[in-house]
Amino acid sequence: MDGLVPIDTVAHDAVERLLDRAFGPDRHARTAYRLREGTVAIPALSFAAVEERRLLGTIQCWPVRFAGDDGRTVPLVMVGPVAVEPDRQQGGLGRRLTAATLAAADAQGLSLMLIGDPEYYGRFFGFTGEATALWRLPGPVERHRLLARGPAVPQGAGAIEPRVTATA
């Protein structure tokens, strides 16, 4: 079972330990975790990188929505976290995981958002902050790190919230 596999084929506690090593145990205090509360990662968009039965990296995607101040609701997928074993970072594994997720999301015509480095996610994956300037999140966020891409990314003021269901 080497290569990229569905994340739900990997033990949940192994994923959690990898996330702790990659981001630290205080990661649960971050705004992104507030957005994921009460949701389940979307299986068709969440992957693990495995080599010789060792978990090397993961990417998870979560069902969120834009609740516009004008009353419209737009389903979105929140990408992340992307986690790679510290001793394997800078080797392209995170890029490979992200590319797999984006290919799956694009095949379904989904619109995506994330909190991340605009230079990296813009350059390699086409994410921008053009539509996100007036979005609100349930916690602090550096505005330039709030990014989106896809066919139905909403413009305007509104809140990003978790969706109740785990389907995109």
Rank of each mutant, 00 (worst) to 15 (best):
F66A: 01
G156K: 02
F23K: 13
T167K: 13
G3K: 04
A168K: 08
Y121P: 03
D20I: 15
Q90W: 13
D117Y: 06
A133V: 06
G91E: 15
R95D: 11
R163T: 06
G158Y: 07
T128D: 11
G150I: 07
V77S: 08
S46H: 12
A99P: 02
Q60I: 04
P138M: 10
P75K: 03
F47G: 05
E130Y: 02
P43Y: 03
Q89F: 00
M1F: 13
R54M: 07
P162H: 11
R65P: 10
P25C: 14
R143I: 14
R123F: 08
A83M: 11
R34T: 06
H144E: 15
A104W: 04
G24F: 07
V141S: 06
M113C: 11
A152M: 08
P162C: 14
G122Y: 11
R123A: 07
V74C: 05
G68R: 01
E52I: 00
L45G: 06
R54F: 03
A99D: 09
D20P: 14
T132W: 03
L35K: 00
R53Y: 04
T167S: 15
P75L: 08
L45D: 06
P81F: 07
R65G: 12
A48C: 01
P6W: 02
F125C: 06
L110R: 02
V10R: 04
G57I: 09
F66D: 00
L76R: 02
L4C: 09
H28C: 09
P25L: 14
R149D: 08
P162W: 13
P118Y: 07
L97K: 01
F23Q: 15
F125I: 11
R21I: 15
A99I: 11
T165S: 15
R96M: 15
G129E: 07
T165A: 15
G3T: 01
L114T: 07
P118K: 09
T73Q: 11
V74T: 03
L146P: 05
G109P: 01
G158Q: 04
A107S: 12
L76Q: 00
A168I: 12
R30A: 15
E142G: 12
V84W: 08
D2C: 10
D70N: 03
A166R: 15
R65C: 13
R149L: 01
L93H: 09
I7Q: 03
V141E: 08
P140G: 15
A103P: 05
A152W: 05
G24V: 10
G109V: 03
A131Y: 01
A41M: 14
L114P: 00
V77D: 02
R21L: 15
G122C: 11
V164M: 14
D2F: 09
A67Y: 02
L19E: 14
A148I: 02
A99G: 08
V15C: 08
C61F: 10
E142W: 12
I42W: 05
H12L: 13
C61Y: 06
A133Y: 04
P6S: 12
L147G: 01
A29D: 15
V10D: 12
W135C: 03
A131M: 00
A22Y: 13
I115R: 05
